[in-house]
């Protein structure tokens, strides 16, 4: 500790960073492999895919940090593209308490000095990453939708102002950290022929808990971001009861119900169903917007959907500029007909 303080003072005199390090010192691409109670979160495979691409462009290695209660899946990370796994197994990692994760990640970074560190922009990732970046006194770019190497530099791309612009962001010290939007990149392919090194690391002692976990409960509620089909209702609905029509179309298709913001604000449906910039961003195979005009706030949450269908009485509604198919008409007439057609098919 004494030595560290002395070193810190020493580098401070020379105007170098305390915890972060110079760009020329950073080497390698790292990803944080998110797990939930030992189960690997799919965003980790997306990070491995993007991380592999960046590492190849930089002609360097790809490392996965796997802090988990059960390391039996570590080999899977090799099959998915990692050259090296730092495996830290401990019961502390069975709970979403950021501090023991931060302690260990910061130590690994300080010992090995990677150039880039990517973390999934899940709730946990977005809570953990700022603590790691803060401890290392380095930059963190939130919720990136694009990452690339341009003339040897790492460029982080993220939407700003309701997705109207894409900001290209660069970080002047290492590690360069980003959180990466879930479902933005494809998962890496699994190749059981791949080889990699799994390095066991003894986790640091953690004498918390600063935060005590009293109870956990699996959420039965919907996860609209995972849905393959979403049917949403908007201001074209006249009464909260009328969500039944949307629900019926939805269950006919086996989809999930969505909503534009005004109806959530009215309390007609819970916020878990809200699609939009300030709600959930969805990217299903099929998105059906019923009685939604297409305010920028809503479009920002669904315009990446594969097929978009719009049903609206107003032919000049902006939603039609974003839709693949449309019917100009009253949802109260059109939706029941769609249900009938689908059932007859």
């Amino acid at each position: 500790m004494q030595l560290k303080r002395w070193l810190n003072n020493y580098v401070r005199i020379w105007g170098v960073y305390d915890m972060a390090y110079d760009e020329s010192e950073g080497e390698g691409v790292w990803i944080y492999c998110e797990q939930e109670k030992g189960e690997i979160h799919p965003v980790s495979y997306e990070l491995l895919n993007k991380g592999r691409e960046l590492a190849d462009d930089l002609n360097t290695h790809l490392t996965a940090l796997f802090l988990t209660p059960d390391g039996s899946d570590a080999q899977e990370l090799v099959y998915r593209g990692a050259d090296r796994i730092y495996l830290l197994e401990h019961d502390n990692f069975n709970y979403p308490n950021e501090i023991p994760f931060r302690e260990n990640i910061v130590k690994l970074v300080e010992d090995n000095k990677p150039e880039i560190l990517l973390i999934g922009a899940t709730h946990f990732g977005r809570s953990l990453a700022p603590r790691v970046a803060g401890a290392l006194e380095t930059g963190l770019t939130a919720d990136c939708t694009g990452l690339k190497i341009e003339k040897g530099d790492f460029v982080q791309i993220r939407p700003a102002f309701t997705g109207n612009i894409l900001a290209h962001i660069s970080t002047d010290r290492c590690p360069k950290m980003s959180t990466v939007r879930y479902k933005e990149f494809d998962e890496s392919e699994r190749d059981t022929g791949r080889e990699g090194e799994i390095i066991d690391i003894e986790p640091l002692e953690y004498d918390g808990p600063d935060v005590k976990i009293l109870n956990e409960m699996i959420i039965e509620d919907i996860n609209i971001q995972e849905a393959e089909i979403v049917v949403s209702g908007g201001k074209g609905l006249k009464d909260s009861q009328d969500f039944e029509i949307i629900e019926e179309l939805c269950s006919t298709l086996g989809g999930t119900v969505g909503s534009s913001r005004p109806l959530v604000d009215e309390g007609w449906i819970s916020r878990n169903h809200q699609v939009g910039y300030s709600g959930n961003r969805v990217k299903p195979n099929l998105y059906i917007a019923c009685g939604i005009s297409g305010a920028p706030q809503h479009l920002a949450g669904m315009k990446e959907s594969k097929i978009i269908v719009a049903i609206n009485t107003d032919p000049s509604a902006p939603i039609f500029d974003y839709a693949d198919y449309g019917i100009i008409g009253d949802l109260y007439e059109v939706v029941p007909k769609l249900i009938k057609e689908l059932r007859e098919g």
Binding site: T141, L166, A167, S170, Y322
Partner: peptide
């Protein structure tokens, strides 16, 4: 500030 905006890109609307 370790990060800085180096470029602003106005994405082409996919316009379906």
């Amino acid at each position: 500030s370790p990060t800085s905006v180096v470029n602003i890109e106005v994405p082409k609307e996919k316009g379906r």
